[in-house]
């Protein structure tokens, strides 16, 4: 009974960030629709959204703001969820969702496409990025997957780093030897939502959905696994099944995000850390809240990037680090910040 009377205080305090976050989601979506380099009054944007409005407003909303907002939601959701899963699965604070070959594989495939195939548009990158990401992560998992599911996946993490290093080296080699490819790869690496139309988001939709399904399958066992892999098995968790689901979710979601926006993995690193410090240790809660927080961070970063350096634009991937890194460091300094 005493513990019951004691918990509400803590629970209320921890509910506040979640409530704030839930409220900021529609606000972020609204900002993403309202703010941009074309200054339009909210009334006209509303009119354009509901089917009326003048030609300029409806063009901007239909072809720029809406598709971009959808792309931001896809990227934020995918990175938030895959980042939370990655930290729960590897128990390593360095592990970003692109670690199992996803970032390096996507970048390598895009570099090949840019330098040797002559692909120039973000829509053309999608297939290459997804293909490269999934192929590389298959290689990583095939090479490094623990033979005994009770051992922690340290070797898988190192295999991801090692295979990723080979691919990253080849990518750098390709781009340094071709000024044209170098320039395009610089933009791709920065990570951006510019010109990401529905063709891009629709193309990754199957990958995203498959990843979300896998994440839902993996979620229930995460708390047991967090206690220790031996203990989880003793509690009746099928480790092979839950690991397979977690790995599939991590790679599919990270691949979807990379295909849309480039390797902006920092979102997947910062969001779950911050969320864990706000909502506590329940992994299912961390997963759900990370999904929302990821979307909010990416949308806000994209909006800031549109107006920060007018008349130019700062890529969303760079803005996420400029916003996310100080938040991460500031929260890490508080005593409540705990390890994995």
């Amino acid at each position: 009974m005493t513990s019951r009377t004691a918990t509400p205080v803590g629970a209320r305090r921890r509910r506040l960030p979640v409530v704030l976050l839930a409220a900021s989601l529609p606000a972020a979506v609204a900002l993403s629709l309202l703010v941009g380099s074309n200054l339009l009054p909210p009334g006209e944007i509303w009119a354009a959204l509901t089917g009326g409005g003048d030609a300029t407003a409806s063009y901007v909303v239909e072809h720029q703001r809406l598709p971009r907002t959808v792309a931001g939601i896809v990227v934020g959701l995918a990175l938030g969820v895959s980042g939370a899963l990655m930290q729960a699965y590897t128990r390593n604070p360095f592990a970003d969702p692109g670690l199992f070959g996803v970032s390096a594989g996507a970048s390598f495939a895009v570099a090949v496409a840019v330098a040797y195939v002559g692909v120039t548009q973000p829509a053309g990158y999608v297939g290459w990025a997804v293909g490269g990401a999934l192929l590389a992560s298959l290689v990583v998992v095939a090479l490094g997957r623990p033979t005994d599911p009770r051992t922690p996946p340290t070797r898988l993490v190192l295999t991801g780093v090692a295979v990723g290093a080979v691919l990253a080296g080849l990518t750098t080699g390709i781009s340094l030897s071709d000024p044209d490819a170098f320039e395009r790869m610089l933009t791709w690496h920065a990570g951006s939502l510019i010109d990401r139309g529905y063709d891009v988001t629709l193309a990754v939709l199957p990958v995203l959905l498959a990843g979300v399904v896998a994440a839902v399958v993996a979620a229930p066992s995460l708390n047991a696994v967090a206690l220790g892999r031996d203990l989880a098995q003793a509690q009746g968790v099928d480790l092979r099944r839950s690991d397979a689901a977690a790995l599939a979710a991590i790679t599919l979601l990270a691949a979807a995000a990379a295909a849309v926006a480039g390797p902006v993995v920092f979102v997947g690193l910062v969001v779950p850390h911050v969320v864990r410090w706000c909502v506590g240790v329940d992994q299912r809660r961390i997963l759900a809240v990370s999904a929302v927080a990821g979307v909010v961070l990416v949308l806000v970063a994209d909006v800031v990037g549109r107006v920060a350096v007018l008349p130019g634009e700062m890529p969303a991937g760079i803005v996420t680090a400029f916003i996310g890194a100080p938040v991460l460091v500031a929260l890490a300094r508080r005593s409540r910040a705990t390890g994995l």
């Binding site: 604070p93 360095f94 920092f266 996310g324 890194a325 991460l328 890490a332 910040a337 994995l340």
Partner: peptide
């Protein structure tokens, strides 16, 4: 742990 997370944050900021 704090050392690692601060390193990650500073590193990402500088990379950007």
């Amino acid at each position: 742990f704090r050392f690692i997370v601060v390193g990650i944050g500073v590193s990402a900021f500088l990379a950007a």
